[in-house]
Amino acid sequence: MTADRTNWRDHDWQLIRGEPVPVVLNHALDEVLVRRVGHGERSPTLRFWDRQGPEIVLGRFQSVRNEVQVENTTADGIEVNRRITGGGAMFVEPQNAVTYSIYAPADLVKGLGFADSYAFLDEWVIEGLRSLGIDAWYEPINDITSSGGKIGGAAQARRHGAVLHHVTMAYDMAPESLPKYLRIGQEKLSDKGITSANRRVGPLRLQTQMERLDIIEHLIGTFRERHGLTPGQITEDEMQEAEELVRTQFGTEEWRFLLP
């Protein structure tokens, strides 16, 4: 099974430091970049995101009415987006989150089960967080946690012969906003009496006292040391394709309300 699995060092990893973009464009970029890596048109890539505004992000399989208090997001002008990976809803503010995507050829995780592939693709992050003094570990399937509280969550989609693996970590908290925008059902509360959305969180700022951009630099350094990393950028062609996908898919009501 593992005979044709490749190693991180078999690939020429490229780094994209995203400029802040309209929030919906990030989701289209994920689709464009994972497809291009899968088709061999781009080197395997690590992209750190930035956002021009806040957003609610739904998992691919979540329904809007079951997860979102639409009357409140509409009143406050909060965009509701749907990503192409599964997992749970989040309310994300640009200054309070660290988000990255890994676009890897499928052979990097060949033979690994889904749960194992999550932990495998984030080993470098666990190492990076530990070297900042956080006792971080992976909690299957897709949580990054610590004794100071949950730090973040990962989600994957396999498509076009590649894996999209993206992670959002809490840098700082705006806990009062959560009940306002997200619905928390009774069943969700039944586990441990708390919810995934507001389960005790251990934001990175609280745990490190570091600036957000310094943490990102540190994590990039960890990736570079472990796996190698060359500065790169989103090409004009890729950006145009992503903008077109916002028009035809990610920005449409059909996609946002795919599961109404």
Binding site: A89, F114, A155
Partner: peptide, 23 residues
């Protein structure tokens, strides 16, 4: 989420924060 018409399940929609491949 679903409707019941003539004692039968219809308009079934499964959702949640799980993962499914392919979508």
């Amino acid at each position: 989420d679903f409707d019941i018409v003539n004692d039968q399940l219809t308009n079934v929609s499964v959702s949640g924060d799980f993962f499914l491949e392919p979508a």
